[in-house]
């Protein structure tokens, strides 16, 4: 009873706090794995599709649970099972196809044996380089008091705001001293960027986002700039 009370408290908190949901899922990962194993009848691999589905189902249970539905774990168990059944039905439609993840007798996956013209070593090196850029960006942003999590809430959604940000990016590209000022003072030189009062107001709401975009414009983020080339050039990605 005490345990159930504790779980309910955590579930209630996790419903509106993704970080708390993440902690709860880590705590109940053995339970989730065990449910998957019970369903599949095999050991659950960390990277298996079933485990990903089960984790998402567990989160779904957190979001939709209420006390009328019995104990939380029983409810989560039901949702996990139901999502795994859905996944199996979907997979059954492709049963005539061979999975690329299927392993041969030597334990190699089919996908690794198919040549697609891509250089795996190059890809790996690129991944490492991208990781290094992201790590560097994260550190620099931290000095501005900005985290990637903050950016998920301060990213502009309206086209008008996006256009304004692009205008500011274009301005900073024209005058690189704005970027220098930003890196030295660790403050957004908003007076040098904005044109009128309303624009300044809009930019204040998206200050963290604009800082990030301007930091990306500085040296050392070629891969990320490549990913965002349409935005940084003034267009929109397709």
């Amino acid at each position: 009873m005490q345990d159930e009370h504790q779980i309910l408290k955590k579930v209630s908190q996790a419903r509106y706090d993704l970080e708390a949901a993440d902690v709860l899922i880590r705590e109940y990962l053995p339970f989730i794995k065990s449910e998957v194993s019970k369903y599949t009848g095999t050991y659950t691999n960390e990277s298996s599709d079933e485990l990903q589905i089960a984790m998402i189902a567990f989160h779904e249970a957190i979001l939709s649970y209420d006390r009328d539905r019995g104990t939380f774990l029983h409810y989560a168990q039901m949702i996990i099972r139901s999502r795994l059944i859905d996944h199996d039905r979907k997979e059954a439609r492709h049963k005539d196809h061979i999975s690329l993840d299927k392993e041969n007798e030597e334990g190699d996956q089919l996908i690794d044996m198919i040549t697609d013209g891509r250089d795996k070593t190059d890809e790996h090196m690129r991944l490492l380089a991208t990781q290094a850029e992201i790590s560097e960006l994260s550190k620099v942003l931290e000095t501005f008091g900005v985290s990637f999590k903050d950016l998920t809430t301060s990213s502009p959604k309206q086209e008008r705001t996006k256009a304004l940000i692009q205008k500011m990016i274009a301005k900073a590209k024209e005058d690189p001293s704005i970027l220098d000022d930003l890196l030295i003072s660790k403050k957004l030189p908003i007076q040098r960027l904005t044109l009128d009062k309303n624009e300044r107001k809009v930019l204040e709401r998206h200050r963290k986002y604009l800082v990030t975009m301007l930091v990306i414009l500085t040296n050392g983020y070629e891969i990320i700039r490549g990913h965002l080339w349409r935005v940084l050039k003034g267009g929109t990605a397709v």
């Binding site: 984790m55 998402i56 994260s138 990637f148 998920t152």
Partner: peptide, 22 residues
Amino acid sequence: LEVHTLYAIALDQDGTFIKIYN
């Protein structure tokens, strides 16, 4: 950009930062 047990943070080509299931 960032990976957690349940979710990840990704940057789309439009420059929007989003939370997605990991």
